[in-house]
Design a protein around this nucleic acid. Structure first.
Length: 490
DNA sequence: TCCAAAATAT
DNA sequence: GATATTTTGG
């Protein structure tokens, strides 16, 4: 899938599928080649299994799928199948003249994704791309939850843009979500047979992607910003103007809401003093962040921040609208946050502070920076360990809490939780963990008064000079029905 | 079922 | 390009 030429292609997904056909019979090779080309696939033929294997070994990234005959003089088709499965893990379709059950079974047992009988029909060849797609989906599913990436995260049932194939490629794997198995297994044949009916990819606005978006917006200037300009600046393959427009709409709504709140003058306290960098910086073991949640209730708070200098806080103080985020705005520079933690909410996080000022000041675009909460559940690897960054805000008042000042919303005593502070600017990560129930109860009692308690966990924090870039808080109670991925503006 | 995110329509 | 509406998926 890492075909270099892929990036230059513009055809719809199955078009250009790179197929390697192996058959000792030159006539069949010719026929198959012709038929496959008719399907708009990119075909490579090979008369010897050994040569095919060699070719694959040399350029395994140059093929998407292999179709091999079973009976070949130099090497049994099953043997080839075995090698391919083990060495390059490409989908392999076997074919033969006879459809003897045992042979077909053998093929399947050896890992063939399909078994075609000669003469092969056009319809069968036209659909082989599904195997590639399914395989990818399968792989994605396996790594789901452990992948982090700074590009687009896409979920699709198919791909309608060649470029998208990059999202599937090993080197540039983007987190791809798939539907639940049941969904496509049931109607796979119908749904997949026509690429045109395949659903469009859904872009998941991860923190990183959102950050790019925010950076672009800032660069352009809020008043002059437009989807097209942002798209150009972001320069993310596969991302469309519509994607950006949609996100921009959400972003604007978010800022508007924030501004409103700000005007309303609800200040939830003086976060500044409470949330100084000292509390945030420090080195903690980030590994703890990897265990997101087990069956029980566990809460975890992670956040990364860069240059934390909070000054203002835009949080909703209204009890009725508590979904929210807490964002602090930093004067001079940067961020802060508050968050609400719902028990039902699985993850809460405030993240990456953007660089826009969600206030009038920002609108004026004076280059001020602000903290911007983002929400997403995204997986990332930090030091080989998956870390999730969350940014979803809870919606229950009773659960809300501000990291800065209101800790009453922290997880209930009966829950196990972890708190971690994670410095994302590159390397350092801080994590704070409390795993005992006792700790929990302590947290649940968190109130401003408990500042000390919190400090104790963050004592190693470095000075303000340390910059924090993202702050995310995640609370995992084990049960939740909220969407937990993507950036959320709330 | 509900809700928010993202896609799509206007 | 902005906004309204619909679709999607957790």
């Amino acid at each position: 899938m890492a075909n270099p030429s892929a990036s230059t292609r513009t055809e719809a997904f199955p078009v250009g599928l790179r197929v390697l056909v192996v058959d000792d019979d030159p006539t069949w090779l010719k026929i198959l080649e012709k038929m496959l080309r008719k399907c708009s696939y990119e075909v490579t033929t090979c008369g010897l299994a050994r040569d095919a294997l060699e070719m694959l070994r040399e350029r395994k990234d140059h093929f998407d799928i292999v179709i091999s005959d079973v009976n070949m003089p130099d090497m049994d088709g099953f043997k080839l199948l075995e090698h391919v499965g083990l060495e390059m893990d490409l989908p392999v379709i076997m074919m033969s003249i006879d459809g003897e059950t045992s042979r077909v079974m053998k093929g399947v047992q050896h890992g063939a994704c399909d078994y075609l009988l000669k003469p092969v029909r056009m319809k069968e060849l036209r659909n082989i791309w599904q195997h590639v797609y399914r395989k990818k989906m399968h792989e994605v599913k396996e790594i789901e939850g452990h992948y982090i990436n700074e590009n687009i995260q896409i979920m699709k049932n198919g791909s309608d843009d060649f470029e998208d194939r990059h999202l599937f490629s090993g080197a540039d794997i983007n987190y791809v979500r798939k539907r639940k198995d049941g969904d496509n297994q049931e109607h796979s044949d119908q749904e997949f047979s026509d690429p045109a009916t395949v659903k469009k990819a859904r872009v998941i606005w991860s923190v990183d992607l959102h950050q790019k978006f925010v950076n672009a917006v800032n660069q352009i200037g809020f008043d002059k910003v437009g989807p097209k300009k942002i798209l150009d600046l972001m320069n993310v393959p596969g991302l469309t103007r519509e994607n950006v427009a949609s996100h921009l709409q959400k972003y604007r709504l978010y800022l508007r809401r924030l501004q409103k709140q700000n005007e309303g003058g609800t200040f939830s306290g003086n976060m500044h003093s409470d949330f100084s960098c000292e509390d945030v910086t420090g080195n903690f073991d980030m590994h703890s962040s990897t265990q997101m949640q087990q069956n029980g209730a566990s809460s975890k708070y992670t956040f990364t921040a860069q240059k934390i200098q909070a000054q203002e806080m835009f949080s909703d103080a209204r009890a009725d609208d508590f979904k929210s985020i807490s964002s602090l705005q930093v004067t001079g520079s940067k961020q802060a946050l508050v968050c609400d933690i719902p028990d039902s909410q699985k993850v809460i996080s405030v993240s990456r502070l953007g660089v826009l000022l969600p206030s009038k000041d920002m609108m004026l675009g004076a280059g001020k920076k602000s903290l911007e909460p983002a929400i997403s559940r995204q997986q990332s690897w930090s030091g080989g360990i998956p870390v999730m960054q969350f940014m979803q805000y809870p919606k229950h008042d009773h659960e809300r809490c501000s990291l800065l000042e209101d800790y009453s919303c922290l997880p209930k005593p009966d829950q196990e939780h972890q708190v971690l502070y994670h410095l994302d600017t590159p390397p350092s990560v801080i994590s704070l963990t409390c795993n005992t129930e006792n700790d929990m109860s302590g947290l649940s009692e968190f109130k401003p008064v408990h500042t000390n308690h919190r400090s104790s966990h963050t004592k190693t924090a470095s000075p303000l000079s340390c910059m924090t870039d993202t702050l995310s808080v995640q609370v995992d109670s084990g049960s939740s029905n909220t969407q937990d991925y993507g950036v959320a503006f709330e």
